[in-house]
Nucleic acid binder design. Structure first.
Length: 487
RNA sequence: GCCCCCAUCGUCUAGUGGCCUAGGACACCUCCCUUUCACGGAGGUAACGGGGAUUCGAAUUCCCCUGGGGGUACCA
């Protein structure tokens, strides 16, 4: 049991739930479930300035909506609480002091201005920006002087140079980085007493007994820094896995700054995307199950997931492909489920005018044509509108024709022959009228659609007539004929 | 600038030295089904970035180049 697999998603609440974060969470979740291990949620909120509760809520809600449920986290607790970094600042400082007393870290009295100056100088002489370790060997009188000036020190970790830091990455394979490329001795505790990300993660991952760190490849250099800290603490190292990033169509990292709401998971929820589709899409982008299946559920993915099948190269976020997955799930999930999820989009309509089974019929006849659930509003509008407004172009093209008038007239005459409880039978009557008038195809169906729906595209005509029922069909055909008369 | 990562159709990918005349999916186009719409079905267009090397044989291994991306904070 000592070998239990433990992974985590550790978002920082400095923004809403990002598609990339969701993908990382998904990979961690899949890995944990596949290995019968634990999936931990931890909040990395040490950046007080940018963190907010609104973002925390958005992230938690979003991940839960995707069904990526964690076994331990700030909301449900767990054996290694707290799962929120701001609640353990003293804890990090304790470890930092340990490093100071063992000579592996020191106090740095540099001011923000001095550091900025240093960086500017380096830039001007086209040198690589890095800290010059000037506080590493301060003598007592220098320290006294800085303290007398009222400077509050930060703590820096000594980065020995040169040396090679290497690890076997579970996705990328061998990675090696020279310590000289890490930018000099690194801050581990800010002068305000709060641990910096690269230090806090290590302590947290240690505290929470994390065995595998699965994250985006933008963290590769951080990993090198963190490995140094593991070593200094003489602590066991987790296995690292860096997944390639998600790109936009221009092959740039998907970012809030550039893409705004398009990276916000909740935006897709609002737009009527299904969590099953997003999960399926995100999972199959950069990962292919052994049987090459395209469509699979979260549970199926859990059973098949493996890190070494995760692609090393970045994937472009392709909304068209997501749309295809979404349409697939809209068509294949149980109809009751679709109705429940569609309801919020239909709230503007007077649903009471239809019985429950008619409502079900409405949703099932329009769902084939939907790519997102939000489209259901427009797709079903004509069912609920009191009067149908036929757009000018449709009116022009169709209702001005004599044959159109004949069709509508005939339907009125044959109204008693319609068995409105049976969609196929309704369609059969229209077919019969077509035969009588020697009209077929568009000439036959478009005028009926135009009169009934106000448009020439729509769900199955038989179903439409059946659901609308005798009185609605009668009045809509009559209004259309009135319109014909005026043209 | 420096460091690291990556490189198969427009996009997501299969491919781990011969099964590749490079397979599948999305998108696009054509056709079929539907006397309309959608769903569905059948086809089609379309890719191994370039150069060396290893080998009887390279999409697959190695090197170089090119291209793309990421990182380079007292942010995470």
């Amino acid at each position: 049991m000592a070998s239990e697999i433990r992974v985590r998603i550790a978002p920082s609440p400095t923004g809403n739930l990002h598609v990339g974060t969701a993908r990382t969470a998904l990979y961690n979740y899949l890995f944990a479930r596949n290995k019968k291990g634990k999936f931990v949620f931890r909040l990395e909120d040490t950046d007080e300035l940018r963190s907010s509760d609104t973002y925390t809520k958005d992230i938690i809600d979003g991940l839960k909506w995707l069904s990526l449920n964690w076994d331990e986290g700030p909301d449900i607790g767990g054996p290694y609480a707290p799962y929120k970094q701001t609640e353990k600042v003293d804890h990090y400082e304790k470890y930092a002091h340990k490093l100071i007393s063992s000579g592996k870290a020191y106090f740095c009295y540099c001011t923000q201005e001095e550091l900025t100056q240093l960086k500017d100088d380096q830039k001007n002489s086209s040198m690589a920006p890095r800290y010059d370790n000037r506080c590493r060997n301060l003598n007592q009188s220098q320290i006294d002087k800085f303290q007398a000036e009222g400077r509050i020190p930060a703590m820096r970790f000594i980065v020995e140079e040169p040396r090679v830091i290497s690890w076997h990455d579970a996705i990328k394979g061998e990675i090696a980085i020279n310590s000289s490329d890490l930018g000099g001795d690194m801050v581990i505790v800010k002068s305000n007493g709060v641990a910096i990300y690269n230090f806090a993660v290590v302590i947290d991952d240690l505290d929470m007994k994390i065995t595998h760190v699965i994250r985006g490849e933008d963290h590769i250099h951080n990993t090198a820094k963190q490995i140094l800290i593991y070593e200094a603490l003489d602590a066991p190292m987790p296995i690292f896995a860096h997944a390639a990033l998600i790109f936009d169509i221009e092959r740039q990292k998907l970012s809030k700054r550039k893409h705004g709401e398009a990276v916000h998971v909740d935006k897709y929820k609002k737009d009527g995307y299904m969590p099953e589709a997003i999960i399926n899409y995100l999972a199959q982008m950069s990962w292919t199950p052994p049987n090459n299946q395209e469509i699979f559920s979260l549970d199926e993915a859990c059973a098949l997931f493996d890190l070494d099948k995760v692609s090393k190269s970045p994937a472009v976020f392709d909304i068209q492909r997501l749309n295809w997955f979404n349409g697939h799930y809209i068509r294949s999930l149980p109809i009751q489920e679709i109705i429940t999820r569609a309801l919020p989009y239909l709230s503007g309509y007077d649903l009471g005018q239809y019985k429950q089974n008619e409502l079900e019929a409405i949703v099932s006849c329009v769902r084939d044509g939907l790519t997102t659930l939000s489209e259901i509003k427009e797709a079903t509008q004509f069912f609920f509108d009191e009067t149908i407004i036929v757009p000018a172009d449709v009116k022009e093209a169709l209702l001005s024709k004599q044959s159109s008038k004949d069709v509508l007239q005939k339907i009125l005459e044959h109204l008693s022959e319609f068995n409105f409880g049976d969609a196929k039978a309704c369609k059969a009557v229209v077919d019969k009228i077509g035969a009588e008038l020697k009209l077929k195809g568009k000439d036959l169906f478009f005028p009926v659609r135009a009169a009934l729906c106000g448009k020439t595209h729509g769900p199955d005509l038989g179903s439409t007539i059946s659901i609308l029922g005798r009185e609605r069909v009668r009045s809509r055909i009559e209004s259309a004929l009135d319109l014909c008369a005026k043209t």
